[in-house]
């Protein structure tokens, strides 16, 4: 059977691959959305933090003998702690200033981090093996699905929805959301808002590092892996609506699918399709699909 001249098996497999890429977009844009929502900071270091997550996993495996499963927890903690340090020593001083200052600071940090890793490891990157438990694949009839890719979707979506649940449905989440709306009032009610903010930034960064560990066995672990991805992820956040949690998750998945389809019908455009959608969305709904105007 063919759909628009493309065999349906190929189309099915492309949609699945789109979903896999979409889960990377979702988990990265979620971190960005949380950070923007609470800190009003456009975190340009996000791509570098994703890259560092992958590198920490690689270093942990090759120098310390720490396996993949431990690295899934270890790398986000290390990079999250680095995030806390950045927030405490640098970002904190910029909250009262224009967005632009936060953007410039985080962009500068991203360049520094990438430069350090490039200097140490070169650009071609390092190979990270797929963990033994997840090696091989299953034949779905219409495609061969590597088990690892299936795991990526499950892991990413679980973390995304758990995060959404915590922010939207728990008391801690309620504090966070209230802090976003009116920090002074929440502070007056006895809640330590600066600590909440530090924790949020650290958590958003840890999400990026988690995505980095997930990506390590799929892509070459290289200093530029983050900057290749981050621009698309920013477009995802803008399309979904800055600061919208569910918006960033759903948009991430949806754009992964659309990109997958573009790769079948007109592969040359697959790098720009996300930005074309961004332009259209900004024209029609300037606040983004899920954003509040």
């Amino acid at each position: 059977m063919e759909i628009f001249g493309v065999p349906s098996a190929l189309l099915g497999s492309q949609l699945l691959v789109g979903l896999i890429n979409g889960s990377f977009y979702a988990i990265l844009s979620l971190g960005l959305a949380i950070i923007f929502g609470l800190l009003n900071i456009i975190n340009f270091t996000h791509g570098a933090q994703y890259m560092m997550g992958a590198f920490v996993a690689w270093i942990a495996l090759n120098k310390l003998g720490i396996n993949y499963w431990v690295a899934l927890l270890f790398a986000p903690i290390v990079i999250g702690a680095l995030g806390v340090l950045i927030e405490r020593t640098m970002l904190r001083k910029l909250y009262k200033l224009d967005h632009l200052y936060g953007l410039l600071l985080t962009f500068g940090l991203a360049l520094i981090f990438e430069g350090i890793f490039r200097d140490q490891y070169g650009i071609s990157g390092q190979s990270y093996p797929v963990p033994e438990l997840l090696q091989g694949g299953v034949n779905l009839g219409f495609m061969f699905l590597p088990i690892y890719r299936g795991w990526v979707v499950v892991a990413a979506l679980t973390v995304c929805f758990a995060t959404w649940f915590v922010i939207e449905k728990t008391k801690l989440g309620a504090y966070l959301r209230a802090g976003t709306e009116n920090a002074q009032m929440v502070q007056a009610l006895g809640i330590n808002v600066p600590l909440l903010i530090t924790f949020t930034y650290g958590f958003g960064v840890a999400l990026a590092a988690f995505a980095g560990v997930l990506a390590a066995p799929v892509y070459q672990v290289s200093p530029l892996m983050g900057s290749n991805l981050i621009i698309v992820v920013f477009a995802v956040v803008v399309i979904g609506g800055m600061g919208s949690i569910m918006g960033s998750i759903l948009t991430g998945l949806g754009l992964g699918l659309i990109e997958g389809l573009t790769r079948v019908f007109y592969p040359e455009a697959s790098a720009v399709v996300v930005f074309v959608i961004m332009v259209i969305v900004l024209l029609v709904r300037p606040a983004g699909l899920f954003g509040k105007a």
Binding site: L10, Q14, V17, I20, Y219, L229, R263, V264, P267
Partner: peptide
């Protein structure tokens, strides 16, 4: 960075 679609 992702070649899976093209490889398929």
């Amino acid at each position: 960075s992702d070649f899976s679609s093209f490889l398929l």
